[in-house]
Design a binder for these strands. Structure first.
Length: 587
RNA sequence: GGGUGCGUAGCUCAGGUGGAUAGAGCAACUGCCUUCUAAGCAGUCGGUCACAGGUUCGAGUCCUGUCGCACCCGCCA
């Protein structure tokens, strides 16, 4: 089903051509949702942009466009206002037909894209042996959301976690494992190495304090790269241990199970080829013993061109080399058209640099889009980087647990006030969904590109643009179904939908805008637009709910309103699922 | 020093391709529960869009400069 916005754009474009000729075929119709509902539902600003080109006054242009517009099948007669805005109002009868169409559709009328692409979303990419912390929060939440949306609209999405499982720190970890848990290498039994973060901290401590240990660590790196059997085994043990640890967090967060771990070690065999290929292409230069590609438009402190080091003076490779190998592999082997990296904005220049080299090497062509979907920092309530009192990064697990605990406290208080009795199972389930949803929604509802302040109190608030507010709107609809013994799936498809009250019409229009919003998010990769839409949908539903009795209404209003309520709930459910958030029937 | 981004209501934040009187939420204040969960709804209050110029019929949005804040800047990832 074509969205109302698309239909209008098409109509305006056609009217432009029939009014002023084919030279306007490629002019954008400039149709957007109305800036103020009193003007209508949509507006076109195109007449204001053409006076110079056409040498006609904007209002006359608008008049000619309106004369040539053929929209009377779905729109009231367009009006011209102010300097030349063309305002459109959708006919309620048309809205009713559209709602009837989507009522039987699981996808709520949203068609898959015409040309699906293969797309990699690279998240959440933690580092082995380091516990996941707030820094991974946004990558996980945003990456998961973008992957879900792209997949929903029909793309072939690969979720690849580019785990930090190689490089210098591993020498330290392996040396520590050999020293502290030598039995790990000889037994097949599963070992309890304690908390991962403790393991890492102890290894780091030994590394910082003991010169001999540092030497052992360096040796381990060499052995690892040389493929020494025992060292590889130690490496594997550490990797598997952390893999289990972050799988627990993924499950708690409800991340897509399809995430494929493909760490830096995977690209290890290709690193020498990267260097030789760059050399063949004449992009490589040697500087202070390191092999570098000198970058265009990047300079160092002295204003000289900045190098991207692909092979260190000691012969080793670094993360830029691995990232380049990943780019090449993804293009040549995975055959992707698009790769999305949801990674912090502090790495903007790093990505700009590797993308530049990828392009100059000919791996990234005009048929590929490599996008750094960067995001801002998570700040504490004091506006500085979120950390514990002692200054360490907050563990992701602790952060999520705290949200769940606080959600549980809220729920228990309410149960007491309302003198409700609920099972322990119910309380567990609701606290978990509300707590996790609150954290995810608080993150996604912010513009991805800016920093935001993390506040449990605000994200768990029952009012405002929060997950609990949206979940409550959904729960209200389910309440109607329970109270009235209504099976929404059995509402007949020949139901006549009547849109009479202002709140009914407003709600209907909003339900039908989901497709426009998803198209936008697919393009801009800004999930906050979808959050904003769902928040407004919930507000409009609550207004409708307040204003229009449903179960007590006479037929045919009763059934019509039931359909409207059901469609609202299904829209919220679908929308939230695209954000990676699940719903509950009661709360 | 160079680079990138940000600065919008008391607070937290939206503002699409430059377009109509700059929007939400929170907080504060005022109403609305014999009626599907009031976890709601209706309303009031609140703005020199950091500052100064410029481009434009039109600037929160584009350009230049100034101030403030954050992040990045050769062999860590």
């Amino acid at each position: 089903m074509q969205s109302l916005l698309e239909q209008l754009k098409k109509s305006v474009s056609e009217a432009l051509v029939s009014a002023f000729g084919t030279e306007l075929t490629s002019s954008a119709p400039l149709v957007v949702p109305a800036s103020n509902p009193k003007f209508g539902d949509y507006q076109s600003n195109v007449a204001l942009s053409l006076p110079k080109k056409l040498k006609i006054a904007p209002r006359s242009i608008a008049e000619k466009i309106v004369e040539n517009l053929k929209v009377d099948n779905f729109c009231e007669t367009p009006t011209i206002a102010g300097p030349g805005f063309i305002n459109f109002t959708i006919k309620p009868t048309y809205l009713a037909t559209q709602l009837t169409t989507i009522q039987t559709d699981n996808r709520l009328g949203i068609e898959p894209v015409r040309s699906p692409q293969r797309i990699i979303v690279d998240y959440p990419s933690p580092n082995v042996a380091k516990e996941m912390h707030v820094g991974h929060l946004r990558s996980a939440i945003i990456g998961d959301c973008l992957a879900r949306i792209l997949e929903f609209v029909g793309h072939d999405v690969l979720r690849i976690s580019h785990i930090g499982d190689w490089g210098t720190p591993f020498g330290m970890l392996i040396a520590y494992l050999k020293e502290a848990y030598p039995e790990a290498l000889t037994t097949t039994e599963e070992l309890n190495l304690g908390e991962l973060s403790t393991f890492y901290r102890q290894a780091k401590k030994r590394f910082d304090e003991d010169e001999n240990f540092r030497e052992a660590a360096r040796l381990s790196v060499v052995q690892l790269q040389a493929g020494d059997r025992e060292t590889l085994l130690a490496w594997k043990i550490v990797c598997e241990l952390s893999s289990r640890s972050y799988q627990k967090i993924y499950d708690l967060m409800g991340l897509s199970p399809e995430i494929e771990a493909r760490g830096e070690s995977f690209y290890n065999p290709f690193l020498p080829e990267i260097v030789t290929e760059l050399e063949k292409l004449g992009l490589l230069e040697e500087s202070d013993g390191a092999k570098c590609v000198f970058l265009e438009d990047f300079t160092n402190r002295e204003g000289e061109p900045l190098p991207l080091i692909v092979q260190k003076s000691d012969g080793g490779y670094n993360y830029a080399t691995t990232d380049l190998a990943a780019i090449r592999y993804r293009v040549n082997v995975d055959k992707v058209q698009q790769v999305i990296y949801p990674v912090g904005s502090e790495q903007r220049s790093h990505f700009a640099q590797i993308f530049q080299v990828g392009k100059r090497a000919g791996w990234i062509t005009e048929n590929h889009q490599f996008i750094h979907a960067y995001f801002g920092l998570v700040l504490g309530e004091d506006g500085t980087k979120l950390k514990t009192r002692s200054g360490e990064a907050i563990k992701l697990k602790e952060l999520l647990d705290k949200a769940i605990t606080l959600a549980r406290k809220d729920l228990e208080t309410r149960l007491q006030q309302e003198e409700r009795e609920e099972t322990e199972e119910f309380i567990d389930r609701v606290s978990q969904v509300v707590g996790i949803s609150a954290v995810k929604y608080a993150d996604l509802s912010q513009n991805r590109t800016s920093d935001y302040k993390f506040s449990y109190q605000k994200m768990l608030a029952l009012q405002g643009n929060t997950a609990p507010y949206l979940l409550y709107a959904y729960v209200r609809v389910q309440g109607i179904s329970r109270k009235g013994n209504i099976d929404f799936t059995k509402l007949t498809t020949d139901t006549q939908i009547l849109l009479q009250e202002a709140t009914e019409i407003t709600l209907a229009k909003h339900i039908l805008q989901l497709g426009e919003v998803i198209t936008e998010v697919e393009k801009d990769l800004l999930p906050n637009r979808l959050c904003q839409y769902l928040f407004e949908l919930s507000q409009k539903f609550n207004q409708f709910y307040d204003r229009c009795p449903i179960l007590q209404a006479d037929e045919p209003s009763r059934t019509s309103r039931l359909v409207l309520a059901d469609l609202t709930a299904r829209t919220i459910k679908l929308g939230l699922s695209l954000l990676g958030i699940s719903v509950i029937e009661r709360m």
